[in-house]
Nucleic acid binder design. Sequence first.
DNA 1: AACCAGGACGTGA
DNA 2: TCACGTCATGGT
Length: 225
Amino acid sequence: MNKLLNIYKSLLKKYGPQGWWPLLGYNNEKIINNPESQKGYHPGDYSFPKNNRQRFEVCTGAILTQNTAWSNVEKALINLKKGNLLNAKAINEADIDIIKECIRPAGYFNQKSVYLKELSEFFISLKGKIPERNDLLKVKGIGPETADSILLYAYNQPEFIVDNYTKRIFSDLGFFKNSAEYYEVKEVFSGKLPQDIVIYQEFHALIVVHAKINYSRKTVRQTHA
DNA sequence: AACCAGGACGTGA
DNA sequence: TCACGTCATGGT
């Protein structure tokens, strides 16, 4: 009866739990020297992040992955970690040119280096508290989707994430108009799904994974051509 | 060799 | 408010 929940269940059955958000060195700290060995996903384990350091890593990744392939973000995160820069205090104090060099593979490094500076200052000001969504949105570089990514994956708050894939797929399925804006789409999901962190986390990951496999822009154009 | 990726900001109308 | 240009690297 619940269409969205049924779609979620079939995606989960098809692809399995995705183990988002990936964290460097989750299984093996040697990931730093061997990026191909272990991508940091932790399927079925929802006990992350385990500490403030991993929380900040999620926030950093959320900014770096804006309009950017995760494979490129991973390179940037590894560079930061190698330079002992994958924590708020270090980024806050570091020369911005050093940060630019580390995150270069993730693209937009001039903008994102500023965003990471802003993020680290905000993160420090939190002093371990859970951020308010409105305060996150005041940070330059954090928009609606990034704010929800941070809240859902770094702080386990029940905020459904709406990305372009979500809009494309579910507007085609008739859940809302393709012109629907962020909060309209978000309300459809959070209104019809149980307020379950696991479902929110897995559903978003599953949508991305499913879309990457058979719902790319090319596929859409071919379908509509 | 174009095209796209787990968006957000700045600008002008 | 709204549509559009800009940002940048690495995969196909």
